[in-house]
């Protein structure tokens, strides 16, 4: 009841800000052609959605994002498990990972362009790199948080190492892994668009650059609005999936609160 009220008030704030946007542009409080009214932006968005251009571009961008998310995520989980379970892997790779982690991904785009070109390979790789580190870190953290008793339990029943990794370690660290993915998801969309803005005529990022050069503020804001909505929808969808996948984790959290 109170949470519904809180949600409603948050929604009201969004509406108020949109209204402020509309009014400030209509009445010329912000007098710039680069500040079009909200309704004009929505109209521009609707126009390019109707022609099928935006859906096609969004589809491309989401595909690249998803491919990068998958590739970087799988690599992060696998290497994270290896890091936490096999000490020699950690010794071998930890310095490289620690060196590469703080590098902002946009900074590595030029060398990636050199080696991977301007097409999907480069863009998916950029997303994968972005996703990789938070997933890796969280996986390692998750594996370290697995109860020693749960692992010993597996051994006392004669369960082999691989099966223990898959059926005890992996599910137990899933809440941490998913938290890593949630961080990665927000970054992945941003980075996919940034990579598209660099070069190549693909996706929402390229559309954004085009519209900037064409001086079409309405389309620019329409893109920004669209990215905001996409990001919101992706996050909500992810939270729902997370609730289903690790319901036990949330149940345990509530229990300890009570």
């Amino acid at each position: 009841m109170t949470s519904r009220l809180r949600n409603a008030s948050g929604f009201a704030l969004v509406l108020a800000l949109l209204l402020l946007w509309e009014v400030s542009a209509r009445l010329g409080w912000v007098a710039s052609p680069n500040w079009p009214p909200f309704t004009a932006v929505v109209a521009a968005l609707a126009r390019d959605v109707m022609t099928g251009e935006i859906p096609l571009l969004v589809g491309g961008t989401l595909w690249r994002m998803a491919a990068g998310l998958f590739a970087g995520g799988v690599a992060g989980v696998v290497l994270g498990l290896a890091f936490a379970l096999l000490p020699f892997v950690a010794r071998l790779f930890a310095p490289i990972v620690e060196l590469l982690r703080p590098i902002p991904v946009p900074a590595v785009i030029p060398p990636l362009v050199l080696f991977l070109g301007l097409d999907d390979t480069m863009k998916v790789t950029v997303v994968a790199l972005t996703v990789f580190f938070p997933v890796l870190t969280n996986t390692v953290q998750g594996v370290r948080a697995v109860e020693a008793d749960a692992l010993a339990m597996g051994r006392t029943f004669g369960i082999g190492a691989l099966r223990r990794a898959l059926f005890i370690v992996l599910p137990a660290s899933l809440p941490y892994i998913l938290a890593g993915f949630r961080i990665a998801l927000a970054l992945a969309l941003v980075v996919a668009v940034v990579a598209e803005m660099i070069a190549g005529e693909q996706g929402v990022g390229h559309y954004l650059v085009m519209m900037q050069f064409a001086g079409r503020a309405e389309e620019i804001y329409a893109t920004v609005l669209l990215l905001g909505m996409l990001g919101y929808a992706l996050n909500r969808g992810f939270l729902l999936a997370e609730r289903r996948m690790i319901h036990w984790w949330f149940a345990l959290g509530r229990q300890s609160d009570a």
Binding site: P110, V113, L114, I198, A199, G200, V209, M210, Q212, F213
Partner: peptide, 19 residues
């Protein structure tokens, strides 16, 4: 196959790199 870049920045290096 045109590739639009937002400035000259990636064009000439891309030529050298064979892109």
């Amino acid at each position: 196959d045109t590739s639009t870049t937002a400035g000259g920045a990636t064009g000439l290096p891309g030529l050298v790199a064979g892109q």
